[in-house]
Measured scan of single mutants.
Amino acid sequence: MGFKLLSKLLVYLTASIMAIASPLAFSVDSSGEYPTVSEIPVGEVRLYQIADGVWSHIATQSFDGAVYPSNGLIVRDGDELLLIDTAWGAKNTAALLAEIEKQIGLPVTRAVSTHFHDDRVGGVDVLRAAGVATYASPSTRRLAEVEGNEIPTHSLEGLSSSGDAVRFGPVELFYPGAAHSTDNLIVYVPSASVLYGGCAIYELSRTSAGNVADADLAEWPTSIERIQQHYPEAQFVIPGHGLPGGLDLLKHTTNVVKAHTNRSVVE
């Protein structure tokens, strides 16, 4: 069995187990497998329904001669939608809004960016022009300005110390501490036991640490421990890039980060 097929099978099995364990909360999309990078042309966006009122959005972007996937989250909030992270750029984010209108038909009224990198804030200006209120932590807003990236308009308070959590509509926002970046936030959907790890969490097929220019490698494993301790009931975990899975993604990420750190020390 090929690795790609095995990865998709694991996603399907995880979703099936969740649907059985929580039949009222989960209505997993039966329309197909989780979209992969090879299936999404740059400039297009796919939506994948995880649970009743919960979707991931998947886009792709060219970077350094390669094409990478990027995940975000959409959560229903009454007759409105909360968006977590842009679709990595203005063109993708405009396509995301169009796809949401086509498939869901509810307005996106608020959006949260989970850290300051372009795959999370690139497209904020498109959201703002569409009347979406954009939010991020003060740290993310400051770092985005320093980096020359787009800056969300509103500040999220109460997320300055490791372990801080605040309720934001249908989700809980959690600051686990520094990891992929010093400002990275985690998003949890309690009604569906869905954990969105953003770039602080890796997919299972990833074996290298990737972009760690703004990471705190020493603190990252401790931050992941905080996530595990705060959300032990999480059933569906979405990484910032690639295929979702279960809580095993947290341990896998820790292993990859520690291996990278150990290699760096040896070198």
Score class of each variant (00 low, 15 high):
Phe3Ser: 10
Phe3Ala: 08
Leu5Pro: 12
Leu6Pro: 09
Ser7Ala: 09
Leu10Cys: 14
Val11Glu: 08
Leu13Arg: 12
Ser16Tyr: 15
Ile17Gly: 13
Ser22Ala: 12
Leu24Arg: 11
Ser27Lys: 11
Asp29Ala: 12
Tyr34Phe: 15
Pro35Phe: 08
Glu39His: 12
Val45Tyr: 02
Val45Ile: 09
Arg46Asn: 07
Arg46Met: 14
Leu47Ile: 12
Leu47His: 06
Tyr48Arg: 09
Ile50Gln: 05
Ala51Ser: 10
Asp52Tyr: 09
Ser56Cys: 15
Thr60Ser: 13
Phe63Tyr: 08
Asp64Gly: 15
Gly65Asp: 14
Tyr68Met: 08
Tyr68Gln: 09
Pro69Phe: 11
Pro69Glu: 15
Ser70Asp: 02
Leu73Thr: 01
Leu73Ser: 01
Ile74Arg: 02
Val75Met: 05
Asp79Tyr: 09
Leu82Ala: 04
Ile84Asp: 00
Ile84Gly: 02
Thr86Glu: 00
Ala87His: 00
Ala87Trp: 01
Trp88Leu: 00
Trp88Gly: 01
Lys91Ala: 15
Asn92Ala: 06
Ala94Ile: 15
Ala94Trp: 11
Leu96His: 03
Leu96Val: 04
Leu97Ser: 03
Leu97Arg: 01
Glu101Arg: 14
Glu101Phe: 08
Lys102Asn: 12
Gln103Phe: 15
Ile104Val: 08
Ile104Ser: 01
Arg110Cys: 06
Val112Glu: 04
Val112Asp: 07
Thr114Ile: 02
Thr114Lys: 04
His115Thr: 01
His117Glu: 00
His117Thr: 00
His117Gly: 00
His117Trp: 00
Asp125Pro: 04
Val126Thr: 09
Ala130Leu: 09
Ala130Ser: 12
Gly131Ala: 07
Val132Phe: 03
Ala133Val: 12
Tyr135His: 08
Ala136Trp: 03
Pro138Tyr: 10
Ser139Gly: 10
Arg142Pro: 03
Arg142His: 14
Leu143Ser: 05
Leu143Asn: 06
Leu143Gln: 08
Ala144Thr: 07
Val146Trp: 12
Glu147Arg: 11
Gly148Arg: 08
Ile151Phe: 08
Ile151Met: 09
Pro152Gly: 02
Thr153Ser: 12
Ser161Glu: 14
Gly163Arg: 05
Gly163Phe: 05
Ala165Lys: 14
Val166Gly: 04
Val166Ser: 07
Gly169Met: 03
Pro170Ser: 09
Pro170His: 03
Val171Ala: 06
Tyr175Thr: 01
His180Thr: 01
His180Trp: 01
His180Gly: 00
Ser181Gly: 02
Thr182Val: 12
Asp183Thr: 01
Asp183Ile: 02
Asn184Cys: 00
Asn184Ser: 04
Val189Ala: 05
Pro190Met: 07
Leu195Asp: 00
Gly197Gln: 01
Cys199Glu: 00
Ala200Leu: 10
Arg206Asp: 06
Thr207Ala: 13
Val212Ala: 09
Val212Asp: 12
Ala213Met: 13
Asp216Ser: 09
Leu217Pro: 07
Leu217Ile: 11
Glu219Ala: 13
Glu219Lys: 08
Pro221Ser: 10
Arg226Ser: 05
Ile227Lys: 01
Gln229Glu: 13
Gln229Asp: 12
Gln229His: 12
His230Phe: 13
His230Pro: 05
Tyr231Val: 01
Pro232Phe: 06
Pro232Trp: 07
Ala234Pro: 08
Ala234Gly: 03
Gln235Ala: 10
Val237Leu: 06
Ile238Ser: 03
His241Arg: 04
His241Ser: 00
Pro244Gln: 03
Pro244Leu: 06
Gly245Thr: 02
Gly245Cys: 05
Leu250Thr: 01
Lys251Tyr: 12
Lys251Leu: 11
His252Gln: 05
Thr253Trp: 01
Thr254Arg: 12
Val256Asp: 05
Val256His: 02
Ala259Met: 11
His260Gly: 12
Arg263Ser: 13
Arg263Lys: 15
Val265Glu: 14
Val266Asn: 13
Val266Glu: 15
Glu267Leu: 09
Glu267His: 12
